[in-house]
Nucleic acid binder design. Structure first.
Length: 623
RNA sequence: GGGGGUAUAGCUCAGUUGGUUAGAGCGCCGGCCUGUCAAGCCGGAGGCCACGGGUUCAAGUCCCGUUACUCCCGCCA
């Protein structure tokens, strides 16, 4: 019988020799596997099969031993009883060792069927065993879902990725990228790669620099996005471009912002209006969400739209979470010249008052005090409120307002289905910000956030320029590539701070999922816009000369978007942060603790070749 | 660059107002066990309490500093 071939009991024999033996004795069988670990079913009962995988878990009863064998596809229970010659070896197997088991598939006794396992009706009787790779004791378990610290997991990410949730998330990432690529191709987009070693593009973020050996003292920059290249592809006449593009920004990490590299679904289209871009992108994004929503609710067409101005007023942010039903209202006029001195004086000095209507009358006093304390912590003066109960208006502000004003406010609250108003009073920018944060917090505290759903909206009509208080100058709000609405005429004749850009974002549940624009393809308009932002013609040519020159040889009007693919994956994977959906993420400090990047272990010769000398302070720190 | 949180066994954590020999679960090692699927039972090993100072008769516990991780601000499509 096959028992005669039993293998792996003698540790002095190389696994390859053991294998040779198997292969020789059963020449017709693949050396590693005839089936995947997810495959065995009742149909296969009685057939001889060979499985390879990791020792997931062993349950040793002395007289009978069960071993769960795991591969990428699934788990099959293998069994050996008392007179099985492989039993002594099986008993000594370390978890996560990689083995090959050959045997006969048998039906499990009916009472021992495991209905939670697709292979749960059957088990493989161990007849041959080969140990392909013996595992050391693991730093943390693969089976189960015991929480393990992030640095521990990322130090041994290859082990972490064997764990069910991490493995599933990476496969989800793969499937989403697959779907995105399929949808882009179906929409006639052409996938084209663009350079990784390129030049700094002044988009705002810090660049990663790569020293040049052939040109010591010169540096490549890693692209923050393929922005200029994709526009050049439009100049080159490719009409519709896309790319799953690696992007590099040397900025500090956040939960929704990866350090180092991240990925955009980058696309650009020729001869399009903003409406064309929306009409193209919406079905692709909604399609991806629907495909992977797994029962969660996905917003349907048409996607809501807010101008930047509306969004800031109603939500206090340009990335609103529409799962939160609360809407902010401007009530500045109610408080102007009112008896509530604090706000009245504020309004007289140019502040605005924003109100958040909600239902909080039944909340205890601690709810209001807690919110007030929280507001102070985030830098607002506090969070005033009025509660309307029956005929009464309660709260510290109410007694300072006359009846007509209270009536006005009451109507406003009731119109919003509420009985309580919270107030933020400050200069417009701060008032919006604080009201927005309060809207989020109140929504959270009152449990108003709609669960298990994805709510989308477009934010449009971003300002082209803004006033930089530090620089005391007009600067670009976003990037210089967007076409100003109204074109040259607006740039020449209008107050720059009133000019809108053909710039738009797409937002889901409070996360910015994409940003895009109809581009400024007219060199004269581009240079004029640069002038307004403080760059003279020479400076504009120096920074964007390549692009401007290209535009002078025949450029189609074009526009597009850059989609934050990772954020989409994070949302669909329900992951707590962006790192969890990369196979090999950097930690928050931008380090790879597993392989040791970045490293100071660079030879002086190499540095010399690159023309680089480390500053004394840096050398000391590294030593 | 700044602020908050955390740091105790291989892992996840507990450890009271400062008080004798620092604990649990999982894992690991050994033994027992013929139907488990988080197998079970018995036993054992394993600790620079992150690091460095300080206060105290006495510090895992209090104070100061450092480091690491994490969240946030600044920064950033």
């Amino acid at each position: 019988m096959l028992h005669a071939l039993r293998l792996g009991t003698n540790n002095s024999v190389s696994p390859y020799l053991k294998f040779g033996k198997i292969a020789a004795m059963s020449a017709s069988m693949h050396p590693y596997r005839t089936h995947r670990c997810s495959a065995p079913r009742a149909d296969h009962i009685g057939t001889t099969m060979r499985l390879s995988g990791w020792v997931h878990r062993v349950r040793d009863h002395g007289g009978v031993l069960f071993l769960d064998l795991r591969d990428h596809y699934g788990i099959t229970q293998c069994v050996a009883d008392q007179d099985n010659p492989n039993l002594p070896t099986l008993e000594k197997l370390k978890p996560e060792s990689v083995i090959t088991i050959t045997g006969t598939l048998q039906a499990r006794p009916p009472e021992t069927i495991n209905s939670s396992l697709p292979t749960g009706e059957v088990e493989l009787v161990v007849e041959q065993l080969a140990i392909l790779s013996e595992a050391d004791t693991l730093p943390f378990p693969v089976h189960g879902n015991e929480p393990v610290g992030e640095d521990m997991r990322y130090r041994h990410r290859y082990i972490d990725l064997r764990r069910e949730e991490a493995h599933r998330r990476i496969m989800l990432r793969t499937a989403i990228i697959d779907s995105a690529r399929r949808r882009m191709k179906a929409a006639d987009f052409n996938e084209i790669q663009t350079p990784i070693l390129t030049v700094s593009s002044p988009e705002g973020a810090r660049d990663y620099l790569v020293p040049s050996r052939l040109h010591p003292g010169s540096f490549y920059a890693l692209p923050q996005a393929p922005q200029i290249f994709k526009q050049l592809l439009m100049v080159s006449g490719f009409d519709r471009y896309f790319q799953i593009a690696p992007c590099f920004r040397d900025e500090d990490a956040r939960a929704d912002r990866a350090p180092g590299d991240f990925y955009q679904l980058d696309l650009e289209m020729s001869f399009v209006t903003q409406e064309d871009v929306f009409a193209t992108v919406e079905p692709i994004l909604l399609g991806i969400f629907e495909e992977f929503a797994a029962g969660r609710l996905v917003d349907s067409f048409p996607v809501a739209r807010f101008s930047f101005e509306q969004a800031l007023l109603q939500f206090g942010t340009d990335k609103p979470d529409l799962r939160n039903p609360l809407r902010i209202q401007d009530v500045t006029t109610v408080f102007a010249d009112s008896g509530f001195g604090l706000f009245a004086r504020g309004v007289a000095a140019g502040s605005v008052v924003r109100a958040i209507p909600c239902q909080a009358a039944s909340q205890p006093r601690s709810f209001f005090d807690g919110l007030n304390d929280w507001a102070r912590e985030i830098g607002a003066g506090g969070l005033g409120y009025i509660i309307f109960e029956g005929e009464e208006a309660k709260g510290p502000i109410a007694k300072h307002l006359d009846e007509p004003r209270l009536t006005q406010l009451r109507q406003l609250a009731e119109a919003a289905g509420g009985d309580t108003l919270f107030f933020a009073c400050a200069k417009e920018k701060d008032a919006a910000k604080w009201a927005g944060l309060a809207r989020t917090r109140i929504g959270d505290l009152l449990g108003l956030i709609e669960p298990n759903s994805f709510r989308f909206c477009w934010i449009t009509d971003y300002p082209m320029f803004e006033w930089d208080e530090d620089e005391k100058a007009v600067v670009f709000s976003h990037n210089p590539f967007s076409m100003p609405q109204g074109g040259m005429d607006a740039l020449v004749n209008n107050d720059p701070l009133t000019i809108k850009a053909s710039q738009y974002d797409f937002v889901c549940n409070g996360f910015e999922l994409l940003s895009g624009a109809i581009r400024n393809h007219l060199p004269e308009v581009f240079v004029k816009a640069m002038n307004i932002a403080g760059f003279d013609k020479d400076e504009a040519e120096r920074r964007f000369g390549g692009l401007l020159k290209a535009f002078r040889y025949g450029v189609p009007p074009h526009g597009g978007v850059g989609v934050g693919l990772d954020r989409i994956i994070m949302l669909l994977a329900d992951a707590p942060n962006l790192r969890e959906i990369y196979a090999f993420p950097l930690n928050q400090q931008g380090q790879d603790l597993m392989l040791g990047a970045p490293t100071a272990d660079v030879s002086p010769q190499h540095l010399k070749l690159l023309g680089i000398q480390l500053a004394p302070t840096v050398v000391k720190k590294a030593g």
